[in-house]
Amino acid sequence: MNGFVIWLMILLGLAEVMVKRRTVAVGLVTAQALILVGFAISEANSIDRLIIAGALALRAFGLAFLYIYLIRRTHEVTPVIASIGPLSRAGIAISLSLALIWLFGSTTLVTPDTSKAVLVLVVFGVVTVITRRATLLQVLGIVLIENGLALSALVIPGGSSLFIEIGVTLDLILMSLVASAFHFRIFSEFGTANAGALRSLRD
């Protein structure tokens, strides 16, 4: 896997952490997924691999359509503002990633680059969940994590599993469907799809 693709994935992830509009965020995640599809196809050496690429593609487009649909249906009167500004978000994400990479030391996937990239993407995803309030963006954070993990699955020595990849795709779609059901209900109950409003359960 070449460095360019990895850096592209990471940059898209960083953009995802910083971005303000939900539509753009969906686009970024989809772009990542499409890169993965391309990568999977370029590496494909068997039918299984191709099917995996297909599953990835399905997931990329399926989720994109679902999210765009959601955004259309739930129009926020005032946009949900993150608690922390974009630059700080990026700063947190980058520093956390660096710290984690340092802590991981030599624990790597096949190539150090990929493993670091996966780590960074997972951290970016988690940081998105931590810092964003819009429910959709939190889901996108999880999709970001999954994108990173899909990347790792593609480079696992001994090969990924067709069964599991399809399963992951289905899982992710299922999760997104459930999340969208919640998103709708939250939007209609609270008047805004803002996770910051979800604070009645505490001790």
């Binding site: 956390l96 984690l100 951290v123 988690v126 931590i130 964003r132 604070r199 359960l201 505490r202 001790d203």
Partner: peptide, 22 residues
């Protein structure tokens, strides 16, 4: 600890990993 904020809950996870790794 149970502040009700999803963000902080997610931060606990990162924190947990960090603490354990350190």
């Amino acid at each position: 600890v149970q502040s009700g904020s999803l963000g902080s809950y997610a931060a606990y996870l990162i924190g947990l990993i960090f603490v354990l790794l350190i």
